[in-house]
Amino acid sequence: MSTILAKKPSTLTDLPMHYCPGCGHGIVHRLLAETFEELNIADRVIGVAPVGCAVFADDYFTCDTVQGAHGRGPAIATGVKRSKPGAIVFSYQGDGDLASIGMAEIVHAAVRSENITVIFINNAIYGMTGGQMAPTTLVGQVATTAPKGRDPKMQGWPINMCEMLSQITGSKYLARVAVDTPQNVLKAKACIKKAFENQVNNVGFSMVEVISQCPTNWHASVEQALEFVRTKMIPQYPLGVFKDEGAK
């Protein structure tokens, strides 16, 4: 009789994910699913899926889900949470979604300190649409709409969301993590868990930014993509907890 040390959480459906090989989305999905199991909240989680690569995320979680318009996740989550205060509501968003078209929604969800959890996947590129420049694209990074690399004179500089949102009184927990190594994945898990515990404890707006790899649109092998995370992404987007008022 063998014991199971680790396996796919029951809070994920059996449907194989559509993400490209080596993409970070799947790792984050699993961390969320494990968190739902461990906090025993699976029966009351309602997820808000975005527009972007994770548009099909609603198929992968066993919880109830709402999939809405690009950038509006925090507004949709606000509507769900205010109508069902007992639910644990999370919005899952990419960088174009959250830091470009949905900038007003994320900022004001933080301003109102909506008691929701936001998972922000930052891979510095528009994935689903085929590699266009994102608000978080690094200086010099090539994208289909920045074919010579992002030039600050033309396209400005990348935006650091955790640092920006930390200036807002209503944001209560802000952490930036990566999923490039097992160590970082375990740290990411701890932060995601904290962000959901905060919601259970009515702390207020919590967001975890995940620096994720996009081998396909970075035109890199999985190995090279992880190297890019370590040597380029993390220097621009330092990892750590930027705000933790849930601890008080």
Binding site: I4, K7, M17, G24
Partner: peptide, 19 residues
């Protein structure tokens, strides 16, 4: 049985068992 493979697998394809 360190589970690092499970931790990194983006497709949640790995099960780690112990006899």
């Amino acid at each position: 049985g360190c589970k690092m493979c499970y931790v990194m697998c983006p497709d949640v394809a790995i099960t780690v068992l112990k006899d």
